[in-house]
């Protein structure tokens, strides 16, 4: 009722302020019902192109299934090498996902909430492992953490710690390539969540840690699960960096992808069989997580 009386020099600011207010209200998730309603009315072309994209993703898997040696599958998959590689893969990928959570969460908060000096450069460095060829990533890790590496030589001299050729090394290689997926997902969610709820919690007496635990993390819960899922999946499929940095030794560093590569040398059919477990494990976990990605 007073908006009509506004004019003069403050008019511009008025528009800005009320736009911001509307945006804030919208971001609180006013009408999810309306959103679902709209999404069922997609243009037909869009839907078709979407199906083409899905086919691009699903067809290679269908190809694998079609070539799978179903009759010999049980004997191939129950071989000790494959079971050993499965165990190493699960340990390495889960440890890498946990590493991403522990290290990536603070980094995501710093990127989203702190004013940084060279934000673009820092963000580019964070995303670098996504574009780096994995073999290069592994070599870079050797240069940094290897026995002759930048930091690795001191680890070796002072603590007698040598990471290459150990399971810990395989975890580091997998975490290195998986970390950006987690950080980027969580940072985007934190940015989208904004400061509003954080400020509200502060006026209610919540301190900095309390706001992170009781407000920020529950608010971005779907993104947390999505980030962990992506990082884990990336770690599970990791090949090049692991091979280069951690080598390949049965029961220690030889993961399923490395076992698949070896099987390819001996018997391509066995390689298909081994990659089927990788797909089965990944699908099982990703499907289970999918429900958690979407907010209730």
């Amino acid at each position: 009722m007073t908006a009509d009386t506004n004019n003069g020099p403050v008019a511009d600011k008025t528009t800005d302020a009320s736009n911001a207010e509307n945006a804030n209200i919208a971001s609180n998730g006013v009408s999810t019902v309306e959103h679902q309603h709209l999404s069922s009315k997609l243009p037909a072309t869009l839907t078709w192109v979407g199906f083409v994209a899905f086919a691009l993703l699903a067809l290679p898997v269908a190809g694998l299934l079609q070539r799978a040696p179903w009759s010999t599958l049980p004997s191939i998959l129950s071989s000790s090498e494959v079971l050993q590689a499965l165990r190493v893969s699960l340990i390495v990928s889960l440890a890498a996902a946990a590493t991403c959570l522990v290290l990536g969460l603070p980094l995501a908060f710093v990127l989203a909430r702190r004013r940084l000096r060279f934000p673009r450069l820092i963000r580019a460095v964070v995303m670098l492992p996504m574009v780096l060829p994995p073999v290069v990533a592994g070599t870079a890790l050797l240069f940094a953490l290897g026995r002759r590496g930048l930091v690795g030589q001191w680890l070796d001299n002072w603590f007698g710690v040598s990471l290459p050729f150990t399971t810990a090394g395989a975890v580091i290689a997998a975490a290195f390539v998986a970390l950006p997926f987690f950080v980027v997902t969580v940072e985007a969610a934190l940015r989208q969540a904004g400061d509003e709820l954080d400020e509200a919690a502060a006026t209610l007496g919540a301190g900095a840690w309390s706001r992170i635990v009781h407000v920020a993390l529950p608010t971005i819960r779907p993104a947390l699960f999505a980030g962990i899922g992506l990082a884990w999946a990336r770690a599970l499929g990791e090949f090049g960096a692991t091979l280069t940095f951690a080598g390949s030794f049965g029961g220690r560093t030889r993961t399923l992808p490395l076992e698949t590569y070896l099987a390819l040398e001996r018997d391509p059919e066995a390689a298909v069989a081994v990659s089927l477990i990788l797909i089965a494990v990944a699908l099982a976990v990703l499907v289970a997580l999918r429900d958690r990605w979407t907010p209730r």
Partner: peptide, 20 residues
Amino acid sequence: APDTLELNVRALVAKLALGE
């Protein structure tokens, strides 16, 4: 007593060349 069984000879050569 190998610490790694490399998947191809090039990878093995690279690790020797790097001193790892």
